[in-house]
Design a protein around this nucleic acid. Structure first.
Lengths: 262, 262
DNA sequence: CGGGCGTTTGAATCAAATCAATTGGAGTGG
DNA sequence: CCACTCCAATTGATTTGATTCAAACGCCCG
């Protein structure tokens, strides 16, 4: 019973974020297991009540684009997505990353149009839900309303954490924090978090974190030198994280005042 | 009929953000007038349906603090507020600024506890609404639900804009953008935006924008030197902005590639 | 008037950006 | 299979925008 969520998380994933059968890597603590189960339960409920329209997407596909009329919210059943805002003067900014169980499209509710692009970064499937139908269903089923509000609330809290990272952490720490967040997100979804495959280029990571691609590269090299992470033998997109705690410790070390050597 | 919203916006404001009777400064365009009216209408509806509990606050008062159990949302009827998140390791970050008509507390919905402090920066009054009562009322009154979702949606979109500014703009432009946002916020609430009184220290502004207080000071001096803003004759907290467009132009100038001089 | 706090401004320093060269894989086609 | 291109990533040298450190100023208030 505990493992059903973990199992279902694997569905619809091909070469994407691969789940691992061993409990050693999947939701290794109670909180992660609970989170993973919550996501599975939420998806099941939404499926039952609303029978959302499925859409399979591939890397590079746009789920919606800025300016488009808002009518649907999406729930991510699998895959990995980025939210990109585009300013009028042409600046582009990756503002958010989304995984299984996350929602897309909240930004469109207020203005009636999306204010950003939602882009798939891997094969996945999203469930489209008409917003008006969702509202109607929420009246009949209060649990749905709770789910919806919690999702929006989490997004708000998460965005604030992002801002905090960008404003208060030096570049190296920001990259470490980014990896930690990614590993955490995988754990909470019942996926193995000791090995992650970045499906973003250094340039995309840099954009998200407010630094250049060279700085990202240097930070990753430093993390590897300090043995906080390791690269897969072949290629440098796969990152092994034997100990997530070490990433947190690295962040703290970056913040600590320079040691006085006498 | 067009001016009622503007009038009501003045209520409950003492020395805070002062409204101006002349239409030249208040909601000078249709969009601003509409926004101002929307805020007034929303407040009226909430007042009628929920009869929120009033609370008068003064500069420095905490509306709620991180860790506190979540039970109420707040609507700001007047005053000016900051949202501050505190990381476990002691970093502090101003993540958001709030004005009349904005909501406080969405971050508490998901986890059942607030994840940040909400601090009044001026005299004002907030309306407290029990979240469970609000949900019940939403079922009976769909307009309420729309209002709630739009507020959350706007907050999400706004947070993303903040992140974009911090990540893509140089320090000078960030300060200009900050002032532009502030002036805009005043316009949308039917208040004069040609003269704003910063109720934040340079240190607070710097924290919010991800830079040091010295850099904020230098940026403001540069804006004044370039005649984009002007300081009040006495003191340097009051800022005159004769032309909001000039702030936008300044931002663009910061982004433009260095001019080739031959 | 004097103390305290917020602000400004300058000079020195530093972290990150920029510029530039090289490496390394993935994919293509002969 | 190898040669080739293309693009991502790394690494080094240099520049630059912002921070840090320091000093002075201005305003408010007891």
């Amino acid at each position: 019973m505990l493992n059903t969520a973990v199992q279902s998380a694997v569905l619809n994933h091909r070469h994407a974020v691969t789940a691992h059968p061993s409990a050693a890597f999947c939701a290794d603590n109670d909180a992660d297991q609970r989170a993973s189960r919550n996501i599975a339960d939420t998806l099941k409920l939404l499926d039952n009540v609303l029978a959302p329209q499925r859409r399979v997407v591939h890397a590079g596909d746009l789920i919606y684009r800025a300016g488009e009329r808002f009518a649907n919210l999406c729930i991510l059943n699998s895959g990995f997505f980025k939210i990109v805002t585009l300013s009028t003067d042409g600046r582009e900014q990756v503002v958010s990353l989304k995984f299984r169980g996350d929602w897309l499209g909240f930004d469109g509710i207020a203005s009636g149009a999306f204010s950003c692009d939602a882009v798939a970064m891997d094969t996945g499937d999203v469930w489209m839900i008409r917003y008006d139908k969702l509202l109607a269903a929420c009246v009949a089923c209060p649990a749905l309303l709770t789910i919806l509000h919690e999702a929006m609330s989490r997004e708000i809290a998460r965005d604030r954490d992002s801002l905090m990272s960008v404003c208060t952490l030096p570049a190296d720490a920001r990259v470490a924090e980014f990896l930690r967040y990614w590993a955490d997100s995988l754990s909470k979804r019942g996926l193995r978090s000791d090995q992650i495959t970045l499906r973003m280029t250094r340039a995309e990571i840099g954009n998200y974190l407010g630094m250049t691609l060279e700085t990202v590269s240097r930070a990753l090299s430093k993390l590897a030198r300090d043995k906080v992470i390791a690269f897969a033998e072949k290629g440098r997109r796969d990152i092994r994280i034997s100990n997530v705690g070490a990433l947190g410790a690295f962040v703290q070390r970056c913040l600590a005042p320079a040691p006085v050597l006498q």
